[in-house]
């Protein structure tokens, strides 16, 4: 239609000069929403530094914070995949324990000792895939399935060690739990645990933002029926995300085992799922699915670690730590919602 082309050209050309400014404004907005809780994290850090009379921003303390954040970051990364599809994984703490038990048990066998690490990962992956299969193929609600495996896998973790603590002071690859990667000899080194956590975040980001599967994950979370009709294999996506969550829980188990040289099926990883979920929500990922980013999760996990560390630094009692942590979490999310008001999603 020739007449049509002429009519279209007009609005198109008038928008081009405004378009640059508009894209800039849009970038700015996206940056602000991507930054999300980062300002809160920075304020917390500075606040603790002042209150603790300068003991927060020391190389040693930051190392401790990063190390403490590591395992939760890994769990929360897996949880991000799951929550992005609109699901939830309550079983990560139990899977972490079972994987650590399986790994430690294997590490004591003379010939197979070196295989403990892949064994821990595979244990986690296996439980995760079972969760995913129950949810995707039998169409059971994720909350129920993972609540069940929270209990069942905890029991299996205890069985694995005959309900005792398993020690192995000479566990192979112990460096990942306690060693550091030296970047500048004598000046800068990062705990291996933190390196792993950062790698996990990076890989997650690549998968979520740079692959077809990533878009499919967001699509399933955004509108499952539409995803099905668009030809997306929803079942495969679901098995994948729960598999990833399990795998990362297995990795978390390996990290804990290497750090402690020991694991106890009853105590290890108790209520870790709550910290992981908290990190994801603090990071701005929507509970309904379809909205969120892995960087937000990283910030969320750091906020939790900074809170724990800072409250200890300034000498707040254990009991008050709980109260303050809870209030900060509610306050931070409330602030986030307030900030997002007036956006397209109201």
């Amino acid at each position: 239609m020739p007449s049509n082309g002429a009519a279209e050209a007009k609005p198109a050309s008038t928008t081009t000069n405004g378009a640059a400014a508009e894209t800039r404004r849009q970038r700015m907005r996206m940056l602000i929403s991507a930054l999300g809780m980062l300002p809160v994290l920075l304020i917390l850090c500075i606040g603790f530094h002042v209150l603790s009379e300068g003991r927060f921003f020391t190389g040693q303390n930051l190392g401790i914070v990063l190390q403490q954040a590591a395992v939760n970051t890994v769990l929360a990364a897996g949880m991000t995949f799951v929550i992005l599809t609109g699901g939830i994984d309550l079983s990560v703490g139990s899977i972490l324990a079972a994987s650590a038990m399986a790994g430690l048990t294997l590490s004591k066998l003379p010939e197979l000792g070196m295989l403990w690490l892949p064994a821990a990962l595979l244990t986690g992956l296996g439980f995760g895939v079972v969760n995913g299969a129950l949810i995707a193929l039998l169409r059971l609600p994720p909350f129920i399935v993972t609540l069940g495996s929270l209990t069942a896998v905890r029991g299996l973790a205890r069985l694995l060690g005959a309900d005792t603590t398993v020690f192995n002071p000479s566990i192979p690859y112990a460096f990942i739990g306690n060693g550091s990667l030296t970047l500048v000899p004598g000046a800068l080194s990062i705990p291996w645990l933190s390196v792993i956590a950062l790698l996990v975040i990076l890989v997650s980001w690549l998968v979520l933002r740079r692959t077809v599967l990533g878009v499919h994950i967001y699509a399933v979370g955004g509108n499952e029926s539409a995803a099905r009709l668009a030809g997306i294999k929803v079942w495969a996506v679901l098995i994948f995300v729960y598999g990833v969550s399990g795998l990362f829980a297995g990795l978390g188990g390996a990290m804990q085992a290497a750090r402690l040289y020991a694991a106890n099926g009853l105590q290890l990883g108790q209520s870790y799922e709550l910290d992981a979920i908290t990190a994801v929500i603090l990071g701005g990922t929507s509970f309904v699915g379809g909205i969120g980013s892995i960087w937000g999760t990283l910030v969320g996990a750091l906020i939790i670690a900074v809170l724990s560390n800072g409250l200890i630094l300034i000498g707040v009692s254990d009991i008050w730590q709980y109260v303050i942590k809870g209030l900060v979490i509610i306050g931070a999310v409330a602030l986030d919602r307030y900030r997002l008001q007036g956006s397209a999603r109201t």
Partner: peptide, 27 residues
């Protein structure tokens, strides 16, 4: 049909992402 929270770009490309992808998976 639509994924309301996803960009128009993703909505338009959704069905051909895999066909267009580099190395089979990379967008």
């Amino acid at each position: 049909g639509l994924f309301l929270d996803m960009s128009c770009l993703d909505n338009i490309n959704l069905a051909v992402l895999a066909r267009d992808a580099k190395l089979g998976w990379v967008l």
